[in-house]
Design a protein around this nucleic acid. Structure first.
Lengths: 242, 242
DNA sequence: CCCCATTTGTTCGTATGTATG
DNA sequence: TCATACATACGAACAAATGGG
């Protein structure tokens, strides 16, 4: 039998969608499903929980927004990867809303990124191995080369900051780093500034971070991180009071 | 009239729900609406974007899960507060899923909380004012009193860690702190341990944090934070290999 | 390549529950 | 009590995408 839900007949007229959503979550938990595993079809979920297909769909959409389930058109519904995509979307929209006024959220995101990288500097210098240093320097040189050609290097920048947190051995910290990076990259364009002119400067600031990390100098690393975020912070400040 | 969406016809019969969701977000942005402001009714949204109620409802449910909109039954739809509730729900469920195995996510959440509070210790001692110190101590004494009566003090604990981050003056950091606290409080019970016996110990560990903060001793504060998280970390380790 | 079964996506119509006045 | 406006829920039908024969 389907071990999903048991309140089919009660019909408490209480929020059906929430019951269905909880039922699906319970189903995943009790069946010990992993990300990627298939879930019952919508029609199967309907008679399992005794709800209409519309209610089931709305519940699935709610869980889909949280990346708890993943829906593939014409294929089926599967357990999601529970990424931080929901955090990114929610926070990015909050940043876009406040961008019209004072860019408050963008400033907070930048501050949090700097604070985390500075606060974790001791563990970074303690945990960085030779290979990670080589890859960090390669990314920084790649930025410099791209800057010399006048090209952007968004993905290099993202990989750099992710790699910087890799020595901590904590997936969640890396995912958070990536999430905040994405939020900043989404909201920053609302500043309306052309950062082409700062491409080579930003690249050199990344190289300074690598130098400090390689020297195992905690304070130098923290200063290099502060210098890295200084331009964007000043830009936000300058835009705030025109 | 309908300043909602202009992409209704641009992308044809692609994913209606996504178009509607983007249309609603555009509506909020272009109208510069703030949290709590009312949105058009479902029927108005329907002819505004040219979609059926079902599609609009599913889109609204998606945005509702991200707290971008808030729906009040029989009342209307309003702009949400864009809280980190989505992060909590997604991360908590991820923790519940991994709890059956090795409590990996719970360990990562605890580590992130400790890392953040330790890394921000310098700014905390620099920014704490007299009033905040008084309130921190009051919360710690409240915990001790509750422990003496054998009672829980969940809310006191939450307020304590939120207050500890208050000196930074960054809303986002406080919200993140609260979010991770909630995730831990949701997932921890899966350890199946009775922490009643550690109530007074935990209370004293909080008091030690206050003492270190009042002394403006950064290293002592970092050690006190480490000691605060030591019991739960050991508990996770012990459960991981039974 | 077409056909077909399966599954999700979209729509409409209708009835019900909920808050406000 | 009634009336209005709104969200909630249900069911049936059709469209679109995927995968296999």
């Amino acid at each position: 039998m389907t071990t999903l839900a048991g309140s089919a007949r009660t019909t408490r007229s209480g929020h059906r969608r929430q019951e269905v959503a909880n039922g699906i979550k319970d189903y995943i938990l009790t069946h010990q499903l992993k990300p990627g595993d298939p879930l019952p079809t919508e029609t199967e979920l309907c008679d399992a929980v005794g709800a209409s297909r519309s209610s089931v769909r709305e519940a699935v959409k709610t869980l889909s927004a949280l990346d708890i389930v993943e829906v593939r058109h014409g294929h089926g519904t599967y357990v999601g990867r529970m990424s931080l995509a929901a955090l990114v979307e929610s926070l990015a929209f909050r940043g876009l809303l406040s961008s019209e006024d004072d860019h408050l959220v963008l400033g907070q995101v930048v501050e949090i990124r700097q604070t985390i990288e500075q606060g974790l500097a001791p563990r970074v210098v303690a945990g960085l191995d030779a290979d990670q240093l080589i890859r960090l320097r390669a990314l920084a040189t790649g930025m410099a080369e791209a800057a010399a050609r006048g090209e952007e290097y968004l993905e290099l920048d993202r990989e750099f900051h992710l790699l910087l947190m890799e020595p901590l051995g904590n997936d969640l910290i890396q995912q958070l780093t990536g999430a905040f990076w994405e939020v900043q990259s989404i909201v920053t364009p609302t500043l309306g500034q052309d950062h082409r002119s700062a491409l080579s400067l930003t690249a050199s600031l990344h190289m300074a971070i690598v130098d400090a990390a390689e020297a195992r100098d905690i304070e130098a690393l923290q200063e290099a991180v502060a210098a890295h975020y200084a331009p964007i912070r000043e830009l936000i400040q300058s835009v705030r009071k025109p």
